[in-house]
């Protein structure tokens, strides 16, 4: 009885909060409170609704989405395999932890020239996205694998489980909620990584749009591209948080 009311109140709150935020952004832009680099929201919206603006944004959003999705998949697969390997061969775990931390600590800006010469301008965004995703996924999966209770480990010992069956029947299912936790955190990181990756000479994508809009002082376009990246990031987060909830219900 109570739940639908509570949900609708929640939705009403978030809508009201969003509306207030947009209104504030509009007023700041309208009165020039933050200088000329902050246009009124309505200017951005009217740019997006022009056929040329819409088509430009849509094409570039698709490119960024595709790079982010590739990086997301690549990073997640490598990280899960790496974390599983570190679980099965415990002696390499400290080394892999350190490697992941060092790789993560190197700034993207420093990696960019290296990536451009190795994988090329077009694939650099996907690789940078994969690096951000990989670190988050490796850390969450490693802790998800380490999270098995000692009672369950004892059970698998006394029923004579070998390494493969222990992994398949205990450690993998147990780590499913952690897996979706990791995906929820990684999805926005993948989009951010792809966008930044496009700054280094990618032929298309929201990152390129942002850089060129900045250089040509096209404030409405700059904000529209930022908005497109934000919306994509939010949508990805919302999708994965739902999956994560389902996984939590099913596996705990």
């Amino acid at each position: 009885m109570n739940t639908p009311t509570r949900t609708s109140v929640k939705v009403a709150y978030s809508l009201a909060g969003g509306a207030l935020l947009i209104l504030a952004a509009q007023l700041i832009g309208q009165f020039g409170l933050a200088g000329r680099a902050w246009p009124p929201v309505m200017d951005v919206v009217s740019y997006v609704t022009t056929p040329a603006g819409a088509s430009l944004l849509w094409r570039n959003t698709l490119v960024t989405f595709s790079s982010a999705a590739q990086g997301f998949l690549l990073g997640a697969v490598i990280a899960v395999l790496g974390a599983a390997l570190a679980l099965v061969v415990p002696i390499i775990r400290p080394g892999m932890d350190r490697f992941a931390a060092i790789l993560h600590a190197v700034p993207t800006i420093a990696l960019a020239p290296l990536l451009i010469t190795t994988v090329g301008r077009e694939d650099a965004p996907a690789v940078i996205a994969a690096l951000s995703v990989g670190f988050v996924m490796f850390v969450t999966m490693a802790s998800g694998f380490a999270n098995t209770s000692s009672a369950h480990q004892d059970l698998f010992t006394v029923i004579g489980a070998n390494r493969t069956r222990r992994l398949a029947r205990l450690e993998l299912p147990r780590a499913v909620p952690a897996f979706f936790d990791g995906l929820t955190l990684s999805a926005p990181a993948a989009i951010l990584g792809a966008t930044i990756g496009e700054w280094f000479g990618a032929p298309m994508g929201l990152g390129l749009v942002i850089v060129s809009a900045m250089q040509n002082y096209q404030m409405a376009l700059l904000w529209a591209a930022a908005m497109a990246a934000t919306i994509m990031s939010l949508l990805a987060y919302l999708v994965f948080i739902q999956l994560q909830r389902v996984a939590m219900r099913r596996f705990t």
């Binding site: 209770s149 059970l155 205990l170 099913r250």
Partner: peptide, 15 residues
């Protein structure tokens, strides 16, 4: 696989 143990905590798989 000739041993059966029932633990204090039941240790059932929740999924």
């Amino acid at each position: 696989h000739r041993l059966g143990v029932a633990f204090q905590e039941h240790a059932l798989l929740p999924w």
